[in-house]
Design a protein around this nucleic acid. Structure first.
Lengths: 128, 128
DNA sequence: ACAAAGGTACGATATAAATCGTAGGTTCAA
DNA sequence: TTGAACCTACGATTTATATCGTACCTTTGT
């Protein structure tokens, strides 16, 4: 029931957990260090705070602590997206899309996928 | 030439300036206070810091200070969007779109606009 | 002429987030 | 059996941001 959005480093941790399921702190920290340098205890501390906020669940097995995300990826992304559209695009989802396609740097493969998603959406909503 | 992204309250100020052109601090602060309470001097201070960062330009006319955005709306939104897609959707623009259409709460009018943007984009890129 | 109303400048402070050091526990191999 | 290499817990600190108080201007109405 936590409606506070994850912070940047919380999100970074959630991404690892969403992509990998049950993980140790060591694993999460190693993954993050593939992108930027951060100490093990920093990651640990953040994950402990996330436990307090009920953003993570912990399973202890054979004395090893495993963590997994307690927040669903879909709903968390949706909340962050809504917030982002509001603050950056004054609430207009369509201007986000416009900006996304605007300059040529979104890759073609992604654009194909987006078109597919839109058609799919249309088919499922013929009633509109 | 500033490539640091605006913070939340900087963005809030930029939105007012993008939407309204030349503004006084008073005007910007009043606009923001339509949404949340914040003191005049807080807004002033933030705008002065933004001046230091070259995010704003100032015009003094008849002893009144007017400010305008020195950052373009389009490029700033694009930078913020890229950052957001990276951190929240692991770089996948299409999964952002999927999430956007996912549950029924993006309004139909916006969806129509998005479809129009996509078709427009296709027409302008028949070569793809 | 001066008080009230409004402005700017800017230091100080508050708040939130992220980072890390250190203490102390467990495991395991030499 | 001891020390190296792991681990967890957690307080303290750092950093970035946001907020505000206060000093000191200028303008304007009476």
């Amino acid at each position: 029931m936590s409606y506070t959005l994850p912070t940047d480093s919380e999100l970074e941790i959630l991404q690892v957990l969403w992509a990998n399921g049950l993980c140790t702190v060591r694993f999460v920290n190693d993954k993050i260090n593939e992108h930027r340098e951060v100490g093990y205890t920093s990651t640990l501390k953040t994950m402990q705070l996330m436990m307090d906020k009920n953003m993570l669940d912990r399973v202890i097995e054979e004395r090893t602590h495993y963590y997994k995300a307690a927040l669903a990826e879909e709903t968390t992304q949706k909340s962050l997206l809504d917030e982002f559209v509001a603050s950056t695009f004054r609430g207009s989802a369509s201007s986000l899309v416009l900006r996304m396609l605007g300059d040529g740097d979104t890759n073609l493969d992604e654009i194909q996928k987006i078109k597919a998603i839109i058609s799919e959406f249309e088919n499922q909503n013929q009633n509109l």
